[in-house]
Amino acid sequence: MTTEPLIEPLITPRAVPAPRALLELLKPITWFAPMWAFGCGVVSSGVAVQGRWPLVVAGILLAGPFVCATSQAVNDWFDRHVDAINEPQRPIPSGRIPGRWGLYVAMAWTGLSLALASVLGPWVLGAAVFGLALAWLYSAPPVRLKRDGWWGNAACGLCYEGLPWFTGAAVMAGALPEGRIVLLAALYSLGAHGIMTLNDFKSMEGDRRTGIRSLPVRLGAESAARLACRVMAAPQAVVVLLLAAWGAPWHAALVAALLAGQGLLMRRFLADPHGRAAWYNGTGTLLYVLGMLTAALALRGGLA
């Protein structure tokens, strides 16, 4: 008489993660924002890309599949308990990435990112070091910036928009980008604070239960939504004024039109902040990043 079980276990524990689970851990869908911002930096530099494509491609890879992917792995490792509530299907809480593999991947991707940045010049390496440090400070104790919605969102906005923009311009110029480039990158980083607040609506329950004081948790959904809209809109309004003052009225008008379009979408979002946060993130944010490119094109055109 056999003593073997009649039914095999549905899930066999893995010793190493499957490639698909690793890719999911690195969240390719999040790479678009920093890669786009890097492209805006390249455009705003005014330097022709002919003969510099290897640098451009390396920089795009650094912004997305390396630095941004590192931040995702770091965040998933230190958020595994929160994800077990909000997104139990994620690779770490689901067990598809076993043991401490999530931490090992985060450390390895940090090293690879620094290695790639080191060949792109000192300004790029400096920006990468700063961005990677913020990624770890954002998620890892004891600092864990994400516990506070003000500081955490500021760090994310800077890493997703400002630093990649700066890096793209630095790669092309081989030096510190000029002041107007840095100023526009900083303004769009500030606006991205609001975009990060939109991302927090989906995890309100887990954040409450684990002590993360995201802005939707601290202020409530309606107040946080209004704040996010204002924080996104105000820097763009400043960009409009700057472009007009710098002698780029058509670019200023286009950014203003894109901002007006966001205003219409914001009205619908504010009617149901919790239910429409993801919707606005996919519609209003598109107009936001198109405004970024418009501003970069204005700088490329050679302002007065």
Rank of each mutant, 00 (worst) to 15 (best):
P91K: 02
S118M: 07
G102N: 02
P98F: 01
T110N: 14
V119K: 10
P91S: 05
R96M: 08
P91Q: 04
L112D: 11
P93I: 06
A117G: 09
P98L: 06
A108H: 09
G99I: 06
T110R: 15
L120N: 04
S94M: 07
V105A: 14
A115K: 12
G111S: 12
W101L: 05
P93N: 01
A108L: 15
V119S: 15
I92M: 06
G102T: 00
I97N: 07
P91H: 04
W101N: 07
G111K: 14
R96N: 10
W109Y: 14
L116R: 12
G111A: 15
V105M: 11
G102C: 01
Y104W: 15
M107P: 08
P88H: 01
V105C: 12
G111D: 11
P98K: 06
S118H: 10
P91I: 01
S113C: 13
G99Y: 03
S118F: 07
R100I: 07
R96V: 04
P88Y: 01
V105I: 15
S113N: 12
L114W: 03
G95C: 07
I97V: 15
S118V: 05
Q89H: 14
P98A: 07
W109Q: 14
Q89K: 13
Y104A: 13
W101T: 07
A117V: 02
L120M: 02
G102H: 02
L120W: 00
A106F: 05
Y104V: 13
G121S: 08
S113H: 11
Q89W: 14
S118G: 10
L120S: 05
P88I: 03
A115P: 11
V119H: 13
L103C: 03
I92L: 07
G95E: 02
G99D: 05
A117I: 03
V119N: 10
W109V: 12
S94N: 04
G111L: 15
I92T: 00
A115M: 14
L103N: 04
S113E: 11
W109K: 10
G121Q: 02
I92K: 03
A108K: 10
L112K: 13
R96H: 09
G121N: 06
A117F: 00
R96D: 09
A108G: 10
Q89E: 14
R90C: 02
G121M: 07
S118E: 08
L116P: 11
V119E: 12
A115C: 14
L120H: 02
R100Y: 09
V119Y: 11
V119W: 14
R100D: 11
A115D: 12
R100F: 08
A106R: 04
L103T: 00
L114N: 02
A115N: 10
R90G: 00
L112T: 13
L114G: 05
G102S: 02
V119P: 10
I92D: 05
R96G: 06
G121A: 07
L103Q: 00
P93Y: 05
S118A: 15
L120A: 05
L114Q: 01
R90A: 00
L103M: 06
A115T: 12
W101D: 01
P91E: 03
R90L: 00
L116C: 13
G102M: 00
P88N: 06
A108Y: 09
R90S: 01
P98Q: 07
